[in-house]
Design a protein around this nucleic acid. Structure first.
Lengths: 340, 340
DNA sequence: GACTGGCACTCAGGCATGTGGAGTGCCAAA
DNA sequence: TTTGGCACTCCACATGCCTGAGTGCCAGTC
């Protein structure tokens, strides 16, 4: 039903439409691509493709534009992955190398990604719950307060102030510090949770409130999803690509970008690193964003992903180029974070 | 030259234009405001106001719109400060009270401000260099590295990793910690700088590299402007108010919003808290933003301001309302931060 | 001298009309 | 199965007209 030539025609339509933003007709197609057949033949193929729902025409006597289904087929079967140029790769590398801490890595990635793809870029901060603890520290503050500092394997540093009620003895703090460290370092926090809970029972009744407060804070503040919700957004000036009508095209995207929860859902679950997720138009889980596509990838150490990054753009985007850029940036970010 | 009635006419024009976004004519003016004179008289006044550069007409036979100079006069002499409603004030208060840390306060303020003004809101994080040190801590990490934690009076917690070259003795760390703390706590970092520099000389040659590294990091990482550059932006969906032409109206603003340096310059120097700065159109120091206005205010303890917050919007904005909202939020944020 | 009513003039924006061109669908012939 | 040709459709653009809002000015009135 879909012979080789029809697929070529679809590919040609997608490529031309992405390039020109205008419905593409049969005549223009045979002129720009060496299809080896006449425009009449292409017209027949187009009719078939439209029948199958891969393309559509905005109105009679207009050219064709791809449907979401058409883009999907294009991405799955027709796109030839464009490799990044050496210059681009070098640019990513040197730009990311200049980062001084995790915050900086994320900022720079977002900029890089926006610049490479000319789309809106989103980078999620490395997940706390999914990385292991490198160092844990308890610092007594003035009064009955304790500063809890957590350094995770991705280099991220988080802190939280714990209110204890009563000032703890130096002895207790030191003891607690070493035992918590023994339990947690090298582990994921979630894996250490059980051990931490048991820890409480091993202290005297007197010390128990303090221990409980610390353990609870650890569990609550650092383990729940809240601390994984941080994201950076960049390249919003590229929203122009969505179209010129602010209310229907641009505003929904801007609103989504302000809702971090929505953003995280858009990026989706981080699968294994350098595994690309592409959602096209109606596949995006928000109705207002039905004319946008999302290209995302997990990033992190080769084994397991730390978080997700990606771009959102109009459905009529350059998928091969965007996918290549997202994949490349994800790879470099993962590398940068695991060696720092 | 500018009698009372002409000023009333100007005020009426500004108010109507802001409300309707359309050039306002003499007829409509006398209908909507009880000026007590006929439209012909208003026409004469308008001619005079135009002569003086306070208003202009987009084309012959159109109504008048205020010029930047007109808005300026309006803001300086004509605007009656609209007080926030009790409900609005209560909303700010309860919303900000729910914040758990400084980050949260800033996030919430930005949202609040955007929602109140229907403009794009910008909040600068409390300045490190301008607040005093509440607590300072040195935490030995694995290897020859030290974690430097700084808690400032605004509740902000910052940390930096120092690379020492050689692992320091526990004794040295403890010694250094207490002496640095003595020097810094209760002071601004900049005021303690001299004492810190002198501190180096009081250690033995052997210890000096370590001390130098710590002191330098303190001075460099926490004292320069870099750490004051953090800002939060919100309400970008309100960009619609700038107009419908993306390229000329919206894109320049989006681009400015991505450049933190530009943003900080827009907010301007924080003067004393609850002192409002209003820049109108051409008064804004960026040429691309000549159709935007900025309303900003410092915030902080009554004495001296910690940082700045504000909104950017089109020159045709509701100045009294915006100014009231900015002032109110600044006041509450200052209060919230100084009591936490 | 200040205000007012009246009048002629200007011009943007909306609406109807007309036209060119790009593109399609279909059919008969190769 | 492909192709050239032809009739048909419909958008985009240009043209022209008209209306209404608004102005500037002037002569008259208080």
């Amino acid at each position: 039903m879909l012979d080789e030539r029809k697929l070529s025609v679809l590919r040609a339509i997608v490529e031309d439409y992405v390039a020109t933003q205008e419905p593409v007709g049969s005549r223009a197609l045979v002129e720009r691509h060496r299809l080896g057949v006449s425009s009449a033949t292409v017209r027949n193929d187009m009719a078939a493709l439209e029948e199958d729902g891969f393309i559509t025409q905005p109105h009679t006597s207009a050219g064709r534009i791809p449907t979401d289904k058409g883009y999907r087929l294009f991405v799955d079967r027709l796109a030839t992955v464009r490799a990044l140029s050496a210059a681009e790769r070098r640019a990513i590398e040197t730009f990311l190398e200049g980062a001084v801490d995790v915050d900086d890595v994320v900022q720079r990635s977002v900029r890089m990604l926006a610049q490479l793809t000319h789309q809106v870029a989103i980078v999620q901060y490395p997940s706390l719950t999914r990385s292991t603890v490198r160092h844990i520290e308890l610092v007594p503050l003035d009064g009955a307060r304790l500063l809890l500092v957590l350094i995770s394997s991705s280099g991220r540093v988080d802190q939280r102030v714990v209110d204890l009620g009563t000032p703890p003895s130096e002895q207790l703090v030191a003891d607690l510090r070493s035992r918590v460290a023994t339990l947690c370092v090298g582990q994921k926090l979630s894996d250490a949770a059980l051990g931490l809970a048991e820890l409480i029972g091993t202290f005297t009744d007197e010390d128990r409130p303090v221990v409980t407060a610390v353990v609870t804070t650890l569990a609550e503040a650092f383990s729940d999803e809240k601390s994984d919700e941080r994201v950076a957004v960049g390249g919003t000036a590229n929203l122009a690509r969505f179209g010129s009508d602010f209310d229907t095209a641009i505003r929904p995207v801007l609103e989504a970008l302000e809702e971090h929860v929505v953003l995280l859902k858009l990026l989706g679950e981080a699968s294994t690193p350098s595994m690309l997720t592409v959602r096209i138009g109606s596949e995006v889980p928000y109705h207002d964003l039905s004319t946008t596509s999302v290209v995302a990838s997990g990033y992190g150490a080769p084994g397991e992903s730390l978080a997700t990054l990606g771009v959102v753009g109009p459905t009529r985007m350059d998928y091969p180029g965007t996918m290549a850029a997202v994949r490349a940036v994800a790879r470099y970010v993962g590398r940068t974070l695991s060696t720092s």
